[in-house]
């Protein structure tokens, strides 16, 4: 197990390097820093001086890979690549266009993101599994058929509409909850409720349909017949045998996104004004703050790889057949 994790961590390094190189290529090779400066400054103020100043301000005035003017190791370190990309491996992301330290922003904003994403995940999982089990219990009846049709209808609605409808009806028309905002502590609960509710509802369609497929696949297997032949009731068969096997793909699917919960949801956070990493990212994209976008790409990849490793470990926990070596 230990050797396995160690090996996986070693494998993660080339992948992170790959991510790093890819983003570097996207941001600096396809477009020169001059292009970026021009875009940032807007058409009106473009003068050679302004561009140069912008580049110096943002540290983009260095060569890409090799600084021939520097001496010693600075030839490699005093470059855009080293300053902007290589330093990410130690989680030093530098400053955003607003002058704030990105790493610090990430630390502050993780909390609010988690406050939304975690309840959405847990409640969503429970709701979806319940619906899926209900449909499976009533399989091959009209209840199941219309359940599936309802799922398809629910998943055919864009997530944006769930949010807009939730904000309009629940917050604006009926005044039940605040339309957006965030506060810490118990006071913040009323701000969290609406985004969580909306996100859970938006996920019901695809979630319960997927889980239903998983459970249906399990229920067709031979061991289910054995369980019935023992004289178990359908409910016991469902909860003890089918659920236990079906939870293997479900749980591992959940584990892979667990670390990514820190990143929050772009859309939800932006609509509901949650000061989390999601809205941070979306603001950065809209403001074309390349430093922040780059940092978030790296953080996201890092968390995804952590998720992959956690998935493998969780497999060995829930499925006795899996041994990590």
């Amino acid at each position: 197990m230990f050797a396995y994790i160690l090996r996986r961590l070693l494998y993660a390094v080339p992948i992170l390097i790959g991510v790093n190189l890819l983003t570097f290529a996207l941001f600096f090779v396809v477009n020169t820093p001059d292009d970026m400066a021009r875009l940032q400054l807007g058409a009106k103020h473009v003068t050679a001086d302004a561009i140069e100043r912008w580049k110096v301000e943002h540290g983009y005035d260095k060569p890409l890979f090799l600084n021939t003017q520097a001496t010693g190791s600075a030839q490699l370190t005093d470059t855009i690549f080293f300053r902007h990309s290589a330093t990410m491996f130690v989680f030093r992301f530098g400053k955003g266009d607003d002058g704030r330290d990105i790493a610090n922003e990430i630390r502050i904003r993780m909390g609010p993101s988690l406050a939304i994403a975690l309840p959405v995940l847990v409640i969503g999982l429970m709701v979806n599994i319940t619906f899926a089990l209900l449909m499976v219990f009533f399989r091959a009846t009209y209840l199941d058929l219309w359940g599936v049709v309802l799922c398809v209808i629910l998943m055919s609605i864009s997530g944006l509409f769930y949010i807009i409808a939730g904000q309009y009806f629940i917050a604006k028309l009926w005044n039940l909850l605040p339309i957006s905002g965030f506060a810490g502590g118990i006071n913040g609960l009323r701000f969290i409720l609406l985004p969580v509710l909306v996100s859970v509802v938006a996920g019901i369609g695809s979630g319960s349909r997927w889980y239903r497929t998983i459970f249906l696949e399990e229920i067709g297997k031979d061991y289910v017949r054995t369980a019935r032949a023992k004289g178990l009731s359908e409910i016991r068969v469902l909860f003890r045998h089918v659920l236990k096997n079906g939870m293997i793909p479900i749980l591992t699917g959940v584990v892979v996104v667990l670390p990514l919960l820190f990143m929050g949801s772009l859309i939800t956070e932006s609509f509901f004004g949650i000061p989390g990493l999601g809205s941070y990212t979306i603001d950065a994209i809209q403001a074309q703050d390349f430093a922040v976008v780059r940092a978030m790409v790296f953080l996201g990849s890092f968390l995804y790889i952590v998720g992959l490793i956690l998935t493998d470990i969780s497999y060995s926990w829930v499925d006795p057949r899996v041994r990590l070596r």
Binding site: Y223, T226, R240, H241, I248, V318, P320, R321
Partner: peptide, 10 residues
């Protein structure tokens, strides 16, 4: 088929 007829995770 006893491999399939027994629940693999219990």
């Amino acid at each position: 088929e006893p491999m399939l007829a027994l629940n693999p995770v219990i």
